[in-house]
Design a protein around this nucleic acid. Structure first.
Lengths: 222, 222
DNA sequence: AAGTCATGTGACCCCACAGTCACATTATAG
DNA sequence: CTATAATGTGACTGTGGGGTCACATGACTT
């Protein structure tokens, strides 16, 4: 956890530090991201950074929590809690995509939180995050089964893993391909691209993907 | 590419070096993996390593090509080229899983080739690899559509991304969960686990997953 | 004004790493 | 047996990293 000092900072400065750190951790894998570079770019002293955060890991985890929190809040505000499974899925995809396009830096940092092997605590934190997202899908699937929109014979656990993989990894790769870029950095470097995907296209994609999901999970006459 | 010197080595020594390197790159993200550690463990001089490989990247790419080549060969030998899409899928999943369980080190190295942001050439290499696997699925899907086993209205590209995500990321996470481990390292550390998944269970999983895929992609009376 | 506490600072320490090079060792050939 | 080419070697270099600390600067109190 960041130290109190960090929260005492004037908001502007705090935001600036966060922003600089997001850039760094978004454009390099954790082990290559450099605190020295962050402080240099942010124009503050290294020692100051260590008054705000315990260490590199502390900063990184703070950023991840920030990103995850904002994304979750955004998505939750966009979906109808009473909708059936597939509607909720479509809304989740839609909201998730929009959030990513509107917050490329946050998106990038979360996307970069994949490797981290060998950093015990960090790895645990990330595994836990993935698990939370999977559990969320598990619950939704089970609810769908109870409501009759999902076949009862699908293996909930397996399905949760697949939905999770599709909506994180698969969807991101697909979107990056739509933009014709190989990395999120390139997307970030050209902000005009964010507008290239029209609302209509995003909707189309979400509905296509949902269709794919439905016919894999939906109750049907075999 | 490795230098000729490397291929002149007695096979035993060559294998030993490869093995040691696989361990290192399998247990740490690329940027944290250390040549110094590899040579120490392998009991050879650092200078020697640089007679075999141009640099760190060269070695890593060699390992990736090796792993990908072996995996591909194994899978191709296991699948029936004339089978329909879903049968081929099931066979691919089955063969891929078996290969992974029997070659945990290779599996691990490939799984670790995810981050690499910021290492231009390396990143390109990996993106190209992912693309190859996606193209393979694309072709299979299109063939399935021509043969009538896959609905014509599915978006081939989107579907290819999803299948790809499911069979790499999703499947791996699922299997790791079955073993109750958070990292592949742990799996490797306890080789007895490799046997815990019985052939029967692997078959069951492959067929379940295929069922999931089919009902998402299969021609049906909607 | 004096004193006290919170915050800022950057030179510095230690360390690990990729990559090099002058030299030692071993094979090959004539 | 000698000469030449191929291979092995590990101390060394340069670089850049995370993290620390003795001190400077500012803010706030009495």
């Amino acid at each position: 956890m960041p130290r109190q000092t960090f929260f005492n900072l004037p908001e502007e400065k705090r935001k600036m530090i966060i922003d600089t750190a997001l850039d760094e951790f978004g454009s390099r894998p954790y082990s290559k991201a450099s605190l020295s570079r962050i402080v240099a770019r942010a124009g503050i002293a290294k020692g100051s950074m260590y008054q705000y955060f315990e260490d590199k890991k502390d900063l990184f985890i703070y950023l991840l929590e920030l990103a995850a929190g904002e994304k979750l809040a955004y998505i939750q505000q966009e979906i109808d809690p009473n909708a059936d499974f597939f509607t909720a899925c479509e809304q989740t995809i839609l909201a998730g995509t929009r959030f990513g396009l509107n917050n490329p830096k946050l998106w990038q940092v979360m996307a970069n939180a994949k490797d981290t092997t060998g950093e015990e605590l960090l790895h645990e934190f990330i595994v836990k995050g993935k698990k939370m997202s999977r559990d969320y899908f598990s619950r939704m699937i089970r609810k769908g089964q109870e409501q009759g929109s999902i076949r009862r014979d699908v293996d909930t656990r397996l399905a949760a893993y697949m939905v999770s993989a599709m909506l994180s990894q698969g969807l991101m790769d697909y979107i990056m391909d739509l933009f014709g870029v190989g990395t999120l950095d390139e997307l970030l470097a050209r902000p005009e691209l964010g507008q290239k995907l029209t609302e209509k296209e995003v909707r189309k994609m979400s509905s296509e993907l949902t269709k794919l999901l439905r016919n894999g999970l939906g109750e049907m006459s075999s």
